[in-house]
């Protein structure tokens, strides 16, 4: 009712967002292919060998962007969750559920590549470093959200319960991060300080940024394609989806 007053809300209707997402997906897909292609080339062939860490350090070009994206996507989800709870928009819950698998994937990727980095650098696959531990907890939060969503059959309840869980999680994240950091400094003996980022080469920095934008594009391409599926599934009873199907069938015949 009130949504007509604010033009911005136009895109929060799944019927208008569906074609918009459809137009955006190819852009993000090609953006991701291009940026990740260039980024990977730079990280393997152009970026100089690190004088301390040798060739193995190159994994940070995927590790760091993945870690950033996993945190960024959780914040994006929290934003959508808050919008969904306050304005009761259908699209926001669809966005949170379409972002979650990608976020979880990046969190997992960050941990996986972290382990691969840790083995040659620290001599062990896993170190209870504050950042690694926080990343692990972030992965748990993603998995919890996905598990909750998948065990609730009623979509309305699932949407709102998921939103509450994300918001509770987002309030907790700083506390968790802070406590893990404290815990980590208390047990200083077993950890090794990370180094390298302060004295970063310019080429390395540019490569890292390109990789980050590549991951960002990838995240949005997958999230938007996924949200299109979710929209169709959720809105299959509505007339606009019926019309869309008829149009598609007409084109196919």
């Amino acid at each position: 009712m009130h949504s007509r007053l604010i033009n911005w809300f136009k895109f929060s209707s799944p019927a208008t967002f569906y074609p918009l997402a459809g137009r955006l997906v190819p852009w993000f897909t090609w953006g991701a292919v291009l940026l990740l292609g260039v980024g990977l080339y730079l990280s393997f062939f152009v970026a100089p060998t690190d004088y301390k860490q040798g060739e193995g350090y190159r994994i940070i070009f995927i590790h760091v962007p993945a870690a950033w994206m996993s945190m960024f996507l959780y914040l994006v989800m929290a934003g959508w969750a808050a919008i969904g709870l306050v304005f009761n928009t259908r699209l926001s819950a669809m966005m949170t559920s379409s972002l979650a698998p990608t976020g979880a994937m990046f969190a997992f990727l960050a941990l996986w590549t972290g382990a691969f980095w840790g083995k040659p650098m620290w001599g062990t696959w896993w170190v209870w470093d504050a950042r690694l531990t926080s990343e692990l907890i972030l992965l748990f939060l993603y998995i919890g959200f996905i598990a909750l969503k998948s065990s609730i059959d009623d979509p309305r309840r699932g949407d709102r319960a998921g939103a509450i869980l994300i918001l509770v999680g987002v309030i907790n994240i700083p506390i968790i991060y802070y406590s893990v950091q404290w815990w980590n400094t208390l047990h200083q003996g077993s950890t090794i300080k990370m180094s390298g980022e302060t004295s970063m080469d310019e080429v390395m920095l540019i490569t890292m940024l390109i990789m980050t934008f590549g991951c960002w594009s990838y995240a949005f391409a997958t999230a938007l394609s996924r949200v299109r599926c979710i929209i169709l599934e959720r809105e299959r009873g509505t007339t606009w989806v019926q019309e869309l199907i008829e149009k598609e069938e007409g084109r196919g015949a």
Binding site: D153, D154, P155, R156, R236, G237
Partner: peptide
Amino acid sequence: CVRGDRSL
């Protein structure tokens, strides 16, 4: 009121 997919 809508329950699941069905408008009651």
